[in-house]
Amino acid sequence: MNPSKEQELQIDNYLSKFRACLPAMSVADREEIVREISVHIRESAQEPNGSVDRILLRLGPAEALASQYEQDRLIQRASRSVSPLLILRATLELGKRGAQGFAVFFGVIIGYALGGGLVLTAILKPIFPRQTGLWIGPGVFDFGVHFPSPADPVHEVLGWWYIPVAFWLGAFFVWLTTYGIRRFLRRSRQHAPLFARAQMGMVV
């Protein structure tokens, strides 16, 4: 049986909401997904006892359905991207899904904070030359900017060499974090055992 006008409106409202919840993908991809869901609803409605209310209930809220596509695309894009921002967003999603995901997110934060911090101090060295560096003394091994600069016997050991050392070390940590997480995301998508994937929320 074809849906009534009222039911058509209900379907259109659902699809509009669904479409609006898929902003982070290309128009072609979005429209293909919306078309498939639209056909599913309309074809199911034509089956005997096909109630639009029941069909929409079984599909779940438009926002929840869209988030399954969005999260999956986000993790897929992050596994191919070098953008720390995208990787952070994807691991934040994993972090919301369980302890293992949170550990991964925490690792990414530490990696980027360490790498970004080193690069930042390399940039700050010419501005605060006496306060920035690698500080060594009895029981002290520290890098960064200190106001006021530490007193004797703690002293700075690298001088102007701090700039290339901190810059390259920082860049190395950022690279290591990015490629480590990309590798993790790819492996977890392709090789993780079925149950582990479910627990990680890869199948939602």
Partner: peptide
């Protein structure tokens, strides 16, 4: 299963 579950899975398998 809830019908909303299968379509995202098909989409992901296609993307892979």
């Amino acid at each position: 299963l809830a019908e909303g579950t299968i379509y995202p899975i098909l989409s992901r398998l296609k993307n892979e």
